[in-house]
Design a protein around this nucleic acid. Structure first.
Length: 588
RNA sequence: GCGCCUGUAGCUCAGUUGGAUAGAGCAACGGACUUCUAAUCCGUAGGUCGGAGGUUCGAAUCCUCCCAGGCGCGCCA
């Protein structure tokens, strides 16, 4: 029985909310509607002889930056000028002439600048968005990109040789939220942790603990350079000594030394893995599967993979070693998979591991790594290609390193001396919500300064509270609506929204309408930070509205319309925070 | 030496996959609580998008070459 088996016996899966989408089509966004209108207008214009060519690519609709340019714009006329052999403004005129808008969503159309066509949206056209939020409840924004395809996100996968640090935390949150977003967008998503429990690091861990045991019992030791020196090694050693059956604390010293080291390794790795799992649990992160590297060796899959590569002539022997032909698949050079001494490399088991992932039915495989491993991407990508999988089926997301700072000053950390601030210490100090949100306030490939003082601040320096405050404020309004104004949930649901005419209200509706496409972008680009930024924008739009207009107390119909709007905002905020793994507090 | 990432306001960062006059927050300055939570809002100021070429109707975004910083380049894991 290996330590991973023991680990499994005790592990209770920490459940993460999972979505199963039943709708097969995406929500039709305002952009989609306009795209359809413009495409049809172009077809009609061509049929009427107003355009020279029927070849128009995909019509793109963009949001405008300034209100002067309307709500949306298309560059159709500019992009098609050469194909049509017409000046852009002529094309734009032809399009506008043939626009058919049966639902009346367009209030005004203008040609501007070199040939942009600007669309001004009629305010009531946003109403269906608010209704949709209420109807779909927690599933608003769930664009079904995945269509039930299986995807696996592997993340953290830190070696069980020491506690997690802040950099691991960033990768953990990136992977966890990415998995949530993909799941929300219709993928069947599993989270997996790969445990490097084979190889030399584990033995080094065992040796480190063993030597500390000897040291603690007064024996003289020479501590090798590559051994682990953290305080946690002492703790584990003390524990092992305390659990000794022998009154003289020397049970392990009665073993053969190799056996004793192996025993220490097993116990230490098990204990550290428990700690890792607990730390991740504190972050609100759980895994569907913990996968043991050793199990790939035990089942013979590593050997099978190497044999298969040789049979397919994807690997060859030279200089007594076995080489994988990575250079045939985009890597700089071929890489060793079996060393001259017969020992397989980490790369060999990684190939076997990724093959195993696909054999388990995952159509897409995503690995979240620390940026310090980026030199490994081409190699593994080459392996996946050689195994016959398409480039789109494998993706490495690199989470860049985190600099821990306190009040602007770097927190000194020396890995070599084993002195570093652990992830657990950070979470205990700043809280799960702040930690998670701050990790998501940068693009994952951008370096991040994590400021402990700022993370604790309850001001608008700290975006997590800024967003949560929206939820709390609206919750408070809703309570008062019921208790002091006697307005029920069904009153709110029945609101006809026609009195929502303030610019801030239209801005809010427009912002809510943007949620599905933001979600789709985050899923397609695998950029979880987009959701965090979206929520900050929506929060900003709400706070501005809140400070300028009162929801309660006015004319009843207006009050109901505003409650309906504000409830939709609350739902989208809550929905987004849930995806980010952050709480939505009713009061703050 | 080679490869990847980063370079945008004083600071920290976005920038909808090539769009129009480059945006937020912090810091600075000036305002807004008798009112649904001021953990909020409004206003002012702040820029050669590291630099130089190129591609085209149009570049922070794409290509080439430099500059600066970070990381990685083993029959290590």
């Amino acid at each position: 029985m290996t330590f991973i088996d023991i680990f499994y016996e005790a592990v209770r899966f920490v459940g993460t909310k999972k979505y199963v989408l039943t709708h097969s089509s995406a929500t039709e966004t305002m952009k989609d509607k306009l795209q359809e209108i413009v495409t049809n207008a172009a077809l009609s214009a061509f049929a009427a002889g107003k355009l020279n060519s029927g070849e128009f690519g995909v019509v793109s609709i963009e949001e405008t930056k300034t209100a002067d340019h309307g709500d949306y714009a298309t560059n159709f006329a500019l992009a098609g000028a050469s194909a049509q052999k017409m000046p852009p403004r002529k094309i734009a005129e032809a399009i506008i002439e043939h626009v058919v808008d049966p639902d009346g969503i367009i209030e005004n159309i203008q040609i501007a600048g070199p040939g942009f066509v600007n669309f001004f949206i009629s305010p009531p056209a946003w109403h269906p968005v608010i209704r949709e939020v209420h109807e779909k409840e927690g599933l608003y924004g769930a664009v079904n990109i995945g269509q039930g395809r299986k995807v696996q996100v592997e993340f953290v996968s830190a070696n069980p040789t020491g506690p997690l640090h802040v950099g691991h935390g960033r990768g953990a949150v990136t992977g966890d939220v990415l998995a949530s977003i993909l799941n929300f967008c219709g993928f069947v998503t599993d989270r997996e942790y790969y445990i490097n429990d084979a190889g030399r690091q584990i033995r080094t861990l065992g040796l480190s603990v063993y030597l500390r045991c000897r040291e603690l019992t007064g024996q003289s030791v020479e501590f090798p350079e590559d051994a682990y020196r953290g305080e946690y090694i002492y703790e584990i050693a003390r524990e092992i000594l305390a659990e000794s059956q022998d009154p003289g604390n020397d049970t392990i010293f009665k073993m053969d030394e190799d056996e004793a080291i192996a025993s220490c390794a097993r116990l230490a790795a098990q204990r550290i893995l428990y700690g890792i799992r607990e730390d991740l649990g504190q972050m609100g992160i759980g895994f569907d599967n913990w996968f043991s590297e050793q199990s790939l060796y035990d089942s013979g899959k590593v050997d099978d993979t190497i044999r298969m590569l040789k049979e397919k002539n994807l690997a060859y022997e030279a200089d007594r070693a076995t080489w994988f032909r990575s250079s045939d698949f985009g890597d700089e050079k071929d890489r060793v998979i079996v060393r001259g001494n017969g020992v397989t490399t980490y790369f060999a088991s990684d190939i076997a591991y990724h093959l195993d992932k696909y054999e388990r039915g995952y159509e897409r495989v995503i690995d979240v790594w620390g940026a310090d491993h980026h030199g490994y991407v081409a190699r593994l990508g080459a392996a996946v290609s050689a195994l016959g999988f398409a480039p789109g089926q494998f993706r490495v997301v690199l989470a860049h390193l985190v600099n821990l700072v306190r009040g602007g000053q770097p927190v000194s950390m020396s890995t070599r001396a084993g002195q570093f601030v652990t992830l657990r210490e950070v979470i205990d100090e700043v809280g799960k919500d702040a930690a998670r949100f701050i990790f998501l306030t940068r693009h994952h490939e951008s370096p991040l300064d994590f400021d402990l003082e700022l993370a604790k601040k309850k001001t608008n320096d700290n975006p997590v509270y800024y967003v949560q405050y929206v939820y709390a404020r609206i919750s408070s309004i809703l309570k008062k609506a019921g208790s002091e104004h006697g307005i029920s949930a069904s009153d709110i649901a029945d609101a006809n929204l026609s009195m929502l005419t303030e610019p801030e209200e239209i801005q809010l509706m427009k912002q809510i309408a943007r949620y599905p496409e933001t979600m789709a972008g985050a899923a397609e680009m695998m950029e979880p930070h987009r959701i965090a930024y979206y929520l900050m924008d929506l929060a900003s739009a709400f706070h501005a509205y809140y400070n300028k207009h009162r929801v309660l107390g006015g004319e009843l119909q207006l009050c109901r319309d505003r409650l309906c709007l504000v409830t939709a905002v609350r739902r989208v905020i809550g929905n987004g925070l849930t995806l980010l793994g952050v709480e939505s507090p009713e009061t703050m």
